[in-house]
Amino acid sequence: MQVKRKLSEIKELLQATSYTEHNLEEIYTETVCGADLLSDVLAFTKEKTLLLSGLIHPQVIRTAEMLDLAGVVFVRGKIPSQEMIDLAKTKNIPILSTAYPMFESCGLLYKLGLGGNFLEEK
């Protein structure tokens, strides 16, 4: 059984910074996806998933928007530009940034009990 976690808990665990005004106490996720290939994310990711990515450009946010993802965490200390922050606010996508690299970020969240997600291909 997978657990649900608040984005606020995840933010604390990853010592992350939040860039939008979302109330992270009220947003939950039970699955996480770590990816730098947006094509993969678009093909296989369930809604309400939290995306961890080392990519940093506006299309990451648009991908999250199309898929109704719970939010995006930029790893390895990548800081979103003002333009990306504005886009994330407009599209209602929480975005965070953590100093941990991808592997460590995923490991910490996995230990927290969060699962991955893999939509079976039709």
């Binding site: 730098d36 290939l37 947006l38 094509s39 994310v41 093909a43 990451v60």
Partner: peptide, 15 residues
């Protein structure tokens, strides 16, 4: 480098 160009777009549209 932006995370596209994996040759999965058209198959994903079809799906």
């Amino acid at each position: 480098q932006m995370g596209f160009g994996a040759g999965m777009g058209l198959p994903n549209i079809k799906k």
